[in-house]
Amino acid sequence: MNEKLPLLPKAQVGKGHLNWLLWLIPIAAAFLCAWFVGEDIIFAGPTVTIYFENADGLQEHNSLLEYRGATIGEVGILKLTKDRQRVAVKVQLDASAANIARQGSVFWIVRPEVKLGALSGLQTIVSGNYITVEPGNGERTNQFIGAETAPIKPVQALDIRLLAPKLGSLQPLSPIFYRDIQVGEVLDCRLSDDAREVVIHARIREEYAPLVRMNSKFWNAGGINVHIGLFSGANISAESAQTLISGGIEFATPADFQNAATNDAVFNLNEKSEDEWEKWSPAIPLHSVPEAMKNKSTLPNLKNPR
């Protein structure tokens, strides 16, 4: 046997590799997992709880919180409160939207709404309902009472009240016309406190506010007016196709107009116009477009966000 050995080739000796380097793999794995968790904790915004009377259409873990079309949070779990009066909706905010969690923020659920003269939230029919928010500027808080409907934005406008014996075909969002141009809309209608008449809350856009004077005359322009007279024959008139369905209000201001109407001024709503009113054509200077509207097209100051 010893004689045969020299015939065999001799194996070489090489340098081995460092096997401790292998332990870098689990260490790297642990670091990556720690980063996953850290990212969730560091880059996640606060969790807020919103109490809705009706969370219809929200889906646990699926629905989103959107603001100006951007997704800024996700709905977590929905839970009934102990008194069964509300649903507590947990929303995990994105870090970029941590500022939303302030007192005064109003959250509401956007649902599809089909009303005459106004369709809103139509995208939610396919996309599902979502929560949206009108940010406030108060103290930081994590508890909110959700609003049932979108808050009416405090806009520069003239709010007036019209008294009518009957509502007729008027409804919220019915248009208000001046010379057949829409200058405002009905906000809501309700019975007066003593139920003797109907109070219609109407809003005139700011630029048209000077048209409303204390002696302006309002009349119901909805529906079809049919006059049948012995000498004039049949006279059928309607303001516009829209008012046929949704109702509408028209007004006119006499040439000897008085002071501009103030907020919450009360007027009578006449059932129909008098011929004289429609002939009135006083010259009233209108407001120019407010400055704030003009600035909307400029870029926001990104360096110093509020």
Binding site: L5, K10, Q12, G14, K15, G16
Partner: peptide, 17 residues
């Protein structure tokens, strides 16, 4: 290949001739 190999110091490996 059948070959003969020496004992190698720790950290080294044997390589085929």
């Amino acid at each position: 290949l059948v070959q003969q190999a020496d004992d190698v110091p720790k950290g080294s490996v044997i390589k085929c001739a």
